[in-house]
Simulated assay, not measured.
Amino acid sequence: MAIDMSACYRAAVRQALPAATIVVDHFHVVQLANTALCEVRRRLTFQHRGRRGRKTDPE
């Protein structure tokens, strides 16, 4: 069974089905990693360069 990566879903599955193996699909793992990487990149760009990097002012 593949589930959403939310902690709420994981807790519910663990409580209702303690012997179940929790599996998440690769797409959502990669999507989460890309989102985290973009947030770090944006934060560091703003801290170091004082700008956000936009289409008209690319990084």
Rank of each mutant, 00 (worst) to 15 (best):
D4S: 11
D57T: 05
V30C: 05
A20R: 00
V13D: 03
Q31F: 07
R51M: 05
R51Q: 00
M5G: 11
L32V: 13
Y9P: 03
V23L: 07
Q47L: 11
R10W: 01
M5W: 02
I3P: 07
I22F: 02
V13I: 11
E39L: 08
D4L: 06
I3G: 06
C8G: 10
D57E: 00
D4P: 00
V13F: 04
T56Y: 00
G50H: 02
L32W: 10
L37C: 07
T35H: 13
A12I: 07
H26P: 14
V29K: 07
E39F: 08
V24M: 15
L44Q: 15
Q31H: 10
A19R: 12
M1T: 14
A11P: 05
D57F: 03
H48S: 06
D4Y: 02
Q15S: 12
T45W: 06
A20H: 05
R54E: 15
F46A: 13
R49K: 09
R52T: 09
R54P: 02
V30P: 02
N34G: 04
C38Y: 15
A16N: 03
A7R: 10
A16L: 08
A16P: 04
M5D: 06
K55W: 12
A7K: 12
E39D: 08
G50W: 07
A2Y: 11
A7E: 13
L37Y: 04
N34E: 04
V30Q: 08
V23S: 02
R54D: 15
I3A: 03
R42C: 10
P18S: 05
A36R: 13
A2D: 10
H26S: 15
A7S: 13
D57Q: 02
C8S: 14
M5T: 09
R54F: 07
R41A: 13
V29N: 05
R52S: 01
L37V: 08
Y9W: 04
D25S: 13
T56G: 02
V40N: 08
R52M: 08
I22E: 06
E59Y: 11
T56N: 02
P58R: 01
D57G: 01
H26C: 14
R14Y: 09
V29P: 08
C38I: 14
F46T: 12
L37K: 03
R41M: 12
H28D: 09
A16H: 06
H48D: 03
F27R: 09
R49F: 10
H48R: 13
V30W: 04
V23W: 03
H28Q: 15
T45R: 12
D25G: 13
V40A: 12
A12V: 06
I3Q: 01
P58H: 00
A11Q: 03
L17P: 00
R49C: 00
Q31T: 09
M1A: 15
E59D: 12
A33K: 10
R10T: 05
H28W: 10
R54A: 14
E59Q: 11
A12T: 05
D4F: 04
Q15G: 04
L32N: 14
Q47D: 11
M1Q: 12
A36K: 13
A19E: 13
A33R: 11
S6Y: 03
